[in-house]
Amino acid sequence: MIAVLRRDLALALRSGGGFGLGLAFFFVVVVLTPFAVGPDQGKLQIVAVGILWIGALLAALLTLDRVFALDWEDGTLEQLALSGLPLESVVMAKAAVHWITTGAVLTVLAPALGVLLNLAPGGYWPLGLSLLLGTPALSLIGTFGAALTVGIKRGGLLLSLLVLPLYVPTLILGAEAARRGAAGLAYETPLILLAALSLGAIAALPFAGAAALKVTLR
């Protein structure tokens, strides 16, 4: 499992494509927002948290169809399934790589980009924390969606449609925590619920994803 993780991480870093794409997309969303909303500092402050969370979510969504696609096309996935390594571990490793290349980097980047959107001074910690705790759930849900659609030609659009409703609870709780923090309110409750959601996703979704992979590989 560690070997799979290392290999995928190395591939992601070396090819650069998927790795950079999500980040670039996140950057573009944040930079373009002021042009669309208007330069008013007060208005930007209101939407800042929402834009940062939406940007992170879409960046994660954009890179999902690459999670299994390459390994599926060249047969690596079948080799992995035959290797005796449980498919659950493969799904977990894939989700972990996806998180490291999108979620983790976005978490670090988001507070910096918050400056551009005039994020309230108290909002940086809650935003960073909520992204740190929420993006693992995004990666796991997305990996599950990717596992469902590996065998389907042009599955990208379908993947977005399937994952969209599954992302709602994470987005609500994450953005709520960050918003309450930015407004100077107590934000522990949504943050704890968000952490619970992520942990639940880590515990359960690898099994669902592996079940989907088994069906497709049959």
Partner: peptide, 25 residues
């Protein structure tokens, strides 16, 4: 049938989660 059934299982869990998250929101 297999893939949609798996989706229905996971989707149902998330449907319940969404319901409470939305009420919270």
């Amino acid at each position: 049938a297999d893939l949609t059934s798996i989706l229905a299982m996971v989707g149902s869990v998330f449907a319940v989660l969404s319901r409470y998250a939305v009420q919270f929101w």
